[in-house]
Amino acid sequence: MGITLAKGQKVDLTKSNPGLKNIIVGLGWDTNKYDGGQSFDLDTAAFLTDGAGKVTSDADFIFYNNLRHPSGSVTHLGDNTTGAGDGDDEQMKVQLDTVPANIEKIAFTVTIHEAMQRNQNFGQVSNAYIRVLDETAGTELIRYDLGEDFSIETAIVVGELYRHNGEWKFNAIGSGYQGGLGALCNNFGINIG
């Protein structure tokens, strides 16, 4: 059984799991019933950043149109456009020992595709979570359930992996943004024009 975190909690990942190299970061959610007439398409992304929390190039932004970091250290395992079914809706594979030395944080985010046009926000999403699995053993190491009631936000930084004294740790962030993917990109130093 893995560790369940609350917002703002930080936990060691590699120190308490010696030899851990390959992990799967799974994100999942359910959409509430409503009469908007539009389906929901939530998208996960990862931003690989330096110590200042900014990407060093656009290649450090991993999402449905850029599924793999040039280093091979982070791979998006595919876009789920419906969120139907149980379990993780989208996953990313991270090879911790191949993350470039200049990358100090990997932030995992969820956005609502075309949220403004569809009049959607995270107030219409429930049971959102992020979890970290040991890929080799298939065991869940960390889980963070977003119990927060987001109302107008269209993007969330769910959690991040970060380096500390040569080890990887996980931070349960749960920070919401208005402005969807564009707001997130600006936050992490990507100009989407």
Rank of each mutant, 00 (worst) to 15 (best):
L5P: 04
Q117R: 10
M1A: 14
N17R: 12
N121F: 13
I106C: 08
T109A: 14
K169F: 09
K54L: 14
L133Q: 11
V25L: 14
G176M: 04
Y144Q: 10
H164G: 04
D86W: 00
D88W: 01
K93Y: 11
A59Y: 04
N102I: 01
G166F: 10
G123T: 08
N66E: 09
I152F: 12
R131L: 03
V94G: 03
P18M: 11
D79Y: 01
N119P: 00
I142Q: 07
N80Q: 06
Q95T: 14
D88A: 15
V125P: 03
G53A: 06
A46C: 13
D43W: 00
R143M: 00
V11A: 15
I173R: 07
A172W: 06
E114S: 14
Q91H: 04
A46P: 03
E160C: 09
G176D: 06
Q9K: 11
I103D: 01
Y129W: 15
A45P: 06
T82S: 15
D35P: 02
E167H: 11
G85L: 10
N191C: 04
A128M: 15
A84T: 11
E90I: 03
D97Q: 07
T75W: 01
D79I: 01
G189M: 10
S71R: 02
S175A: 11
W29R: 06
G159Q: 09
G147V: 08
A101M: 06
D58C: 03
S151C: 06
G166A: 11
N102L: 05
A6P: 00
D12F: 00
L27H: 01
A155V: 13
N127W: 02
E90Y: 04
K21D: 15
Q9W: 07
G26Y: 01
L42I: 07
I152V: 15
N127Y: 02
A115H: 07
W29G: 10
T4S: 14
D12Y: 00
G179F: 04
T154V: 11
L181K: 03
R118M: 08
K169G: 06
S126A: 14
Q120N: 08
R143C: 00
P100A: 11
D50M: 02
R68C: 13
L27W: 00
V94W: 03
N22Q: 14
